[in-house]
Amino acid sequence: MPVRVGIREAKAHLSRYLRLVKGGDEVIVTERGRPVGKIVPFRDTDLSVDDRIERLQAEGIIGPPKKLAKVPHPVQAGGKSAQEYLREDREG
């Protein structure tokens, strides 16, 4: 069950409530007894993909990306694009 705390109490003892959140609890912040916000544990899924990759690299779980081989530019055959050839092929 979430812990409920008034704004003044939360400000005065923020570190105490953050310890609860780190332990997996939720803290509901109230103003005059009415909920106005919630402090919840941070999950890795809240990070961007780049931040998650950076964290995995820092933890040694994955290595840095390998260099990719250069891919040649597409060659046009007969001045038509691949989409045009595909469309012609589908139309029969």
Rank of each mutant, 00 (worst) to 15 (best):
D25G: 03
D46Y: 11
R4W: 14
G37C: 09
A77I: 06
P64C: 03
E91V: 00
Q57I: 10
S81E: 03
I61E: 09
V29K: 09
V75R: 04
K22Q: 13
E26I: 03
R4T: 06
R34Y: 07
R34W: 04
R90Y: 06
D25F: 13
G33H: 01
P64Q: 12
G6T: 04
Q57F: 08
G60S: 08
I39Y: 01
R90D: 01
V75Q: 09
S15M: 10
Y17G: 08
L68P: 05
K22M: 11
K38E: 09
E88T: 03
K38W: 00
V3E: 15
E54Q: 15
I61N: 10
S81F: 00
R55K: 12
V36P: 15
R8E: 15
K70A: 02
G60M: 05
P41H: 02
I62Y: 08
A77L: 08
V49H: 14
R4L: 14
A12Y: 06
D51I: 01
P41T: 00
D89T: 01
R16S: 07
V29A: 06
R8M: 14
I62D: 10
E84L: 01
D46N: 10
V21K: 13
G6A: 15
T45I: 07
G79Q: 02
I7L: 15
K80P: 14
F42E: 09
A69Q: 07
V3C: 11
D51V: 03
K66T: 02
E84C: 01
R43Y: 07
L20W: 07
G33L: 05
E31D: 12
K80M: 06
D25P: 01
R32F: 11
G60C: 11
Q76L: 15
Y17H: 07
L56I: 02
Q76K: 15
R87Q: 03
G60W: 11
L56M: 12
R34Q: 07
G78L: 01
K66G: 07
F42Y: 09
A77V: 08
P64T: 07
V49A: 15
D89F: 10
P64A: 12
K66W: 06
L14W: 03
T30G: 05
R32A: 05
G24Q: 04
E31L: 11
K66F: 04
